[in-house]
Amino acid sequence: MSEQTQRQAYWKANLKLVAFCLSIWFVVSYLFGIILVDQLNAIKIGGYGLGFWFAQQGSMYIFVILIFFYANRIGKIDQKFNVHED
């Protein structure tokens, strides 16, 4: 593979990973925390309605996990396509 096509393949893999992470980002905040909040609130965890919990607690925990997940995966992709830093 030439360097050019290698880089293009790397970028494609990166975009795929970003799209996957952002869809989770969207689901836990906008979908669970706002759009479906009433439906989810029918489910209780402790004193929290589930939708309310996602809006004021859960989404934030998942955001943290997402960033480290992305950093870890993209690090491996860097290695695979040989575009990592020295």
Partner: peptide, 21 residues
């Protein structure tokens, strides 16, 4: 109350965009 969730999610979710994009 619940409506203020926008501040919580809004001011943390931006870091995901920052780190990824």
């Amino acid at each position: 109350g619940y409506d203020a969730s926008v501040y919580l999610m809004g001011w943390t979710g931006g870091y995901v965009l920052l780190a990824l994009l």
